[in-house]
Design a protein around this nucleic acid. Structure first.
Lengths: 366, 366
DNA sequence: CTGTTAGCGCGTTCAA
DNA sequence: TTGAACGCGCTAACAG
């Protein structure tokens, strides 16, 4: 059951470009390999200036660059971090990847990209591939299954790896790995409170799939905030969407029957779909109905009615994930951390006071 | 001048997890290492069924997975492809990356992601990093400088690498590398012809930076198509934008003075900016002014007025890039190819006949 | 201060 | 069939 394990690969072709090795520069300088290695690695202290110069000169002349493969085999460090995400073409993940890559580069770390396609088997394959290549650590956004039904299984695989793993965005609380996310509950509070402050009382909600913890947190933030304002959340005002355009569209059609004055969507894609449905039904945003999203995907600012939303500092989260991973790589005993970023409310033009709080046909804002 | 060359890295810590090696399974089975290697690699023909079984059993029991580092050092193949792109958070590139990763995986290839940030020095650093890690090949979207002022320099570096390089999207024609792109000229033809067919005669154009060949091609397609229709392109109807929202916005404001009935933007981001400007000036899309873009970034279909545009099969281009690279890795003498994908016109709702061809205040389409 | 030796994990002759 | 020896490129003990 070891799948398509590649044992040797090619029949040892040796044709590929023969780069200059340390041996070449030893030969050229007439010194021993060790000497060359020593001066290059600044070990062993004082070599005659002449020797150093000769080595450096040869290195330059022959354009020598050490073979990292050999170094890795020896030092057991590849300076590589594995990144497993469900879908690189999703702006959220690509932004995350960018933060990771940028931070990694600062420490000469490189990232191997693995798309899990949000499929558990594929994800496991990714883990194996990365382990086989001896990455120094993994940053992972779990697939739905991995923090769902297969969570135990997945965690035990991750633990057996023997190198640090950082979980981002989606996971179940655990002390086995450091985790990075935003405070989803608080994000919802921000959004709902904003709506409340504007004077809304019938606030609909289009949530994401509730099997996912992140989404449960967001929903909890919604209900909690309403309760704190002495309003009891009505089940009829809550619709469980699919996190995609279509779900938002359908959700809005559904909620419209309940005459809400505002709709809080648990991600931006659904907010866009909801806005479309609302407009198609003859209402205008935000005059008749306010809409607020979550995530602040880059596009929302360019919509005809730029979307109010809750922003996650994704790029920074990527940088932080890499930073934490590097620390744990450097010190295997570093205690695991649970890092939560504060979300940020971004008020644009899709939210405004409800119609009732304004005179008929009078717009409060111009 | 070899920058921050990492020679050895860490002081050879050996703490990281000791995975089970071929030696372990040899010990466990009581066989020799060679025997184990042989049966695992299906070499050497007929071993007693018993021997085979024992080996496979031990492999499973000890969860043995060969160390790819060691194999790579030996076979001079890392099964790794390096990807250099200006910005992974750009949907175009992330989609490309996905195609590459997916296709690569089919052949057990992994991809190392490098963001060049569109900066030449960084890009060169990426090339070095990848070469140091002995990638089997590189797929690259050149930075502006690399196919501009530094083209000669960059090409010579790439050629000296000794492994295949595939250029995607941006490059200057060259027989040294296989290249993959769409037919940009034809893409423009499609767009302009569509506008012409609708009855437009004053067609404005917001181009991208003309130092980039891709953009020059798109502009050429525009002028060529107009000429073929016996219309002489007016310089006043052409605006050089920056490929971003802002450029489209400014460009539209500028072109509006020329009373165009349609605007062809050389990418979607600018089209979105242009649409915004047009609306702000009191015109409606497409009733007063038609707008068409280029690229079909995923978002355009969700705009209030879904954008007509020219689509590039980016994902497929990524897959193809990987496929071509794999072929050239397998056979170093494979002749270089120049692959051009046909663009595809996507008609949505931002294009319609010009006002003049309809009765006053009468909308042709509902 | 320098060179020799060993070995990282593995695949491959070549004898036995 | 199998085991010993060698080497991929490099670093680290240990002598000299």
């Amino acid at each position: 059951m070891h799948g398509s394990l590649r044992f040797s690969g090619f029949p040892a072709k040796k044709e590929p470009a023969i780069r200059t090795t340390i041996k070449d520069i030893a030969k050229k300088t007439g010194l021993s390999i060790t000497t060359v290695s020593l001066v290059l690695n600044r070990k062993g202290g004082k070599f005659p200036a002449e020797t150093k110069r000769a080595v450096l000169e040869a290195v330059d002349a022959l354009n020598y660059r050490p073979n990292q493969l050999a170094i890795s085999l020896l030092t057991r460090r590849t300076h590589t971090i594995g990144l497993i995400i469900p879908d690189i073409s999703n702006i959220f993940f690509s932004e995350l990847a960018k933060g990771i890559a940028d931070r990694g580069r600062q420490d000469d770390y490189t990232v191997i990209l693995c798309n899990s396609n949000d499929e558990y088997p594929l994800e496991q394959q990714c883990i194996n591939t990365l382990a086989d290549r001896s990455v120094d650590g993994i940053i992972m956004v779990m697939s739905a299954e991995s923090f769902g039904s297969k969570n135990k299984e997945c965690v035990s695989v991750l633990l057996s790896l023997g190198f640090p793993v950082i979980l981002v965005d989606c996971f179940n609380d655990s002390d086995d790995f450091s985790t990075i996310t935003i405070d989803n509950k608080q994000g919802s509070c921000l959004a709902v409170q904003h709506l409340l402050d504007l004077g809304h009382s019938r606030i609909g909600c289009i949530s994401g799939p509730q099997r996912i913890k992140t989404n449960r947190d967001r929903l909890e933030g919604y209900t909690k905030t309403l309760k704190q304002a002495n309003r009891s959340p009505e089940p009829a005002l809550i619709y469980e969407g699919d996190f995609r355009y279509h779900g938002g569209y359908e959700g809005a059609l559904h909620l419209l029957k309940q005459k809400p004055t505002a709709i809080f969507c648990h991600n931006d894609m659904m907010a866009i779909g909801a806005a479309k449905a609302v407009k198609e039904k003859g209402f205008s945003v935000p005059e008749d109905i306010s809409i607020i999203g979550f995530d602040d995907i880059f596009f929302t600012q360019y919509m005809d009615v730029p979307l109010s939303t809750v922003a996650q500092p994704v790029y920074h989260m990527g940088q932080e994930a890499a930073a934490v991973l590097l620390e744990e790589i450097a010190d295997g005993n570093k205690p695991k951390r649970r890092i939560m970023y504060p979300p940020r409310l971004i008020i644009r033009q899709s939210t405004a006071p409800p119609p009732s709080s304004r005179g008929p046909s009078v717009r409060l804002y111009l």
